[in-house]
């Protein structure tokens, strides 16, 4: 055992360098003034106070709203898909899951550019509509295009955990429910859906987390004035150069996500009594 423990040392060093230290630095930045060097740290809460400015509150609200919307759409689309896939023969299931996974291997930016080609005013969709004599519809740089882009990128992360929990479910449980008088709808609500909850929770957490912190998709499909939390953080670090404020926003985002995860996990663990 001792020998194996030694082998894990590089891993811990790696974790400390690339996860723990950046985290500590971000928190440190969030609570200090700009411009001071490491020796004379001036702790302050100013960075957090600034967030309560109306413009920033709006950014947070919009991000949360789009995050919830994206997650909801991913769930509504993803659950039936995962369910249908889990009903196929094993080999077909593997193929379909492969088909769901492969797009995530292609760079997100490239996939998003494909959407631009489709959605823009003189893009493919409007071109086809034009052939039918319909005036071009503005789809780019709207909430619609951003949510569409997010959903397309994130729906696999909803499908896969739900499918996993459905697939490993013992089919005799469905039969047992039917045997005890539950029709297919009751069987789904009382047994299948409840048992797939761990997958649902994981899917929701992953999609929400990625949706709320995304910044590439909102910029490409939403345009320059489309600002979500992710864009705000990126701006502060890359163009404005106010690392302290950027860190404060990141910290708040992290806390929000942690709270959301806690709530979801709690929902999963709470006893599910008969309705």
């Amino acid at each position: 055992m001792k020998h194996f423990r030694k082998l894990s040392v590089p891993y811990f060093i790696w974790c400390i360098i690339f996860i723990l230290i950046p985290l500590v630095l971000i928190i440190l930045y969030a609570f200090t003034n700009g411009g001071n060097d490491v020796k004379t740290l001036n702790f302050t809460l100013d960075n957090f106070a600034r967030i309560f400015d109306e413009t920033y509150i709006k950014v947070f609200a919009k991000s949360l709203l789009l995050g919830v919307l994206t997650t909801a759409i991913c769930f509504v689309m993803g659950y039936p898909l995962a369910y249908i896939i889990s009903k196929q023969d094993d080999s077909i299931q593997d193929m379909l899951i492969m088909a769901v996974t492969i797009p995530t291997w292609i760079n997100m930016v490239i996939r998003t550019y494909a959407w631009i080609n489709l959605l823009s005013d003189n893009g493919i969709i409007n071109g086809l509509l034009g052939l039918l004599g319909i005036d071009p519809v503005t789809m780019m740089y709207t909430n619609f295009s951003v949510v569409l882009g997010l959903v397309c990128n994130l729906v696999p992360f909803m499908i896969i955990p739900i499918h996993t929990s459905l697939r490993k479910m013992d089919p005799s449980l469905t039969e047992a429910a039917m045997d005890l008088g539950a029709d297919p709808v009751q069987t789904f609500i009382r047994v299948i859906f409840k048992l797939s909850m761990p997958g649902v929770i994981n899917g929701i957490i992953m999609v929400f987390l990625m949706a709320i912190s995304s910044f590439v998709i909102p910029r490409l499909l939403g345009g320059g004035q489309f600002v979500l939390i992710g864009n705000l953080i990126e701006q502060q670090f890359v163009s404005v150069g106010d690392w302290n404020f950027g860190s404060a926003i990141s910290t708040i985002l992290a806390v929000l996500i942690l709270i959301a995860m806690r709530l979801m996990k709690k929902m999963d663990a709470s006893p599910m009594d008969e309705a």
Binding site: D170, S172, L173, E175, A176, A177, M178, D179, L180, G181, A182, D183, T187, V191, K194, L195, M272, D273, E274
Partner: peptide, 24 residues
């Protein structure tokens, strides 16, 4: 369909619902 039959089954691997207690 099975849910309309006056027949009940004891399955080989019991098939108890893992998300419910004994009473439920």
């Amino acid at each position: 369909p099975p849910y309309k039959r006056e027949v009940n089954t004891v399955f080989q691997k019991y098939a108890l619902f893992p998300h419910m207690n004994v009473f439920d």
